[in-house]
Design a protein around this nucleic acid. Sequence first.
RNA 1: GCUGCUGUAGCUCAGUGGUAGAGCACUUCCUUGGUAAGGAAGAGGUCAUGGGUUCGAGCCCCAUCAGCAGCUCCA
Length: 598
Amino acid sequence: MSVSKAAPETQEPYPLSTLRHSVAHLMASAVGKLFPGVQYGFGPSIEHGFYYDFDLPEPLTDKDLKRIEKEMRRIARQSPEIKREDVSREAARERLLGWGQEYKLEALDGIPEDEAISFYGHADWADLCEGPHIDSLDRPFHFKLLNIAGAYWRGDEKRPMMQRIYGTAFWTESELAEHLEWLKEVKLRDHRRIGTDLDLYSTHEEAGAGFIFWHPSLGIVRHEIENFWWEEHIRRGYEPVYTPHVLREELFEKSGHLEHYAEMMYAPMTIDGMPYRVKPMNCPGHILMYGSRGRSYRELPLRWAELGTVYRYERSGALHGMLRVRGFTQDDSHIFCTPEQLADEIAGVLELTDFILKTFGYEYTAYLATKPAEKFIGDDDIWERATAALREAADKVGMPLELDAGGGAFYGPKIDFKQKDALGREWQNSTVQCDFNLPERFDMTYTDRDGTQKRPIMVHRAILGSFERFVGGLIEHYGGKFPLWCAPSQVAVIPIREQHAEYCGKLARELKADLFRVRNMDEPGHMNKKIKQAQHDQIPFMLIAGDRERDEGTVTIRRRATREQEVVPFGEFLELIRSLRETRSLTLERNAGAARGT
RNA sequence: GCUGCUGUAGCUCAGUGGUAGAGCACUUCCUUGGUAAGGAAGAGGUCAUGGGUUCGAGCCCCAUCAGCAGCUCCA
């Protein structure tokens, strides 16, 4: 997941990235002062700040960050001027040798022959660097060092692990404060925190890492999403299929998974003396079904959909809450079609993806990923035709495409979606991929109009990606405040006094009869406490009723996250939430149908 | 997997080698309250697990498991 929060880009005369790179230098010089003998790696500016990599004998701690910040301020005050020095390659080498900077020497060797070599520095410190930098550290700016982490030299896991310090910098104090506030909000919305707080899911040491247990409250969220998903798929001519989880190893040899994907697959188990594997993907199963009898052009396209649970080995350090797990359910589908049908089929997928993502309130960008430069199968002609079909499909539904040149899979071009959540962070879940490989490997055919056997094209597509990742992302996107249609509890009914429990019970029964999920809070205890509880649990609506409401047949509505009260006849409330549910409204306001996708 | 850090009650956390703590949540009783925490009492922990050091370990050491920040890799 990457992040693309709107950030101020420039401040005359320097862009923010230049400032951040200079602050990275300032940090490096401070680290050099405090830890003599440090070896420097790279220290670029990044999307929301900067980092610098160091090789130090001692591990850094959070306490060191404060010391380093202090030293940075001292240095900036004392010798603010940043100087550039152009040197010959030989002089640079001698200088770096003199300083004993081995990583920098390697970096120097990586600079092309025809490029100039320069150092940037301040005070008695300098760094091999092409710049640019701000001219002086006494310009007004504000920074903060954020965290320490390990990072491989040059991102290569076979090379030494260095210590990386992340920080951020802005021209103004208010921008820095705003960014820190945003980081706080990110932390507050963390699905792992909300997941525990709202009793949504758990993982268990006893069960092993990377396996998600969906509690009832999140179970109903998923159930609603599944219903929605199936409804829209069946509407569009998809057919549900179900395939087994454990299959003979031979099948994965034939599909090529064992060859290309073995390190992601769990070890074989022996059944009747034969090796079997837990499936890491659903496609081989669907292909078997396709091949169960002869196929005619008349029955194409076939759109087979399965919420298929797969298991993949992920390295322990890669696991992350619900977002990166070892067992997950894909909203998978395979479309088998003729080359002529391809563009229409893709268009249908794009339209459906657009509809589903917008229902959840996601903006998105679609990327066309074309033929990789090196490893690929299939001849140029079929790649060109498939890529053209993807373009044509996007055109047909009026979807703009960004280009991801060479980003296709080895088996075909694809369109990937990056969806943007409420905090401006981007997630990649949805994908549509053309596949020329598997139809070939499994010798899939259909009989065409002229009686000849032809090869179908196979399209893999997932829109949510996996329920685990998608719902984990949704928790953060909504901050636990699910829209009414999929909220775990939809209405809390709160009597003002115990004697109003009867009226409240009647309201609750009527809502339940209409299949609303109701929390009837008729247990003894104070109303205020129940309001607080319902608020904490992010229940969209509270219905509060006392003498007045009972006598008039009304309810007092209170929406989550607001203190405003509204008294309406119960029938009117029922109508409101029916309409919110039907339109899968993202808000809790009347006429919210119009608010779809905003 | 790698580097660093962490693991004490359901949750958030205090506890620097000598009798396991707090707040919230939970249970019971009292409280009958008009829009975000009424009061009292109670229950709840082999201090992740297994070894070691020590007269004595939640605390020190080692291993394992799980988690966190990243790197690498991905739906």
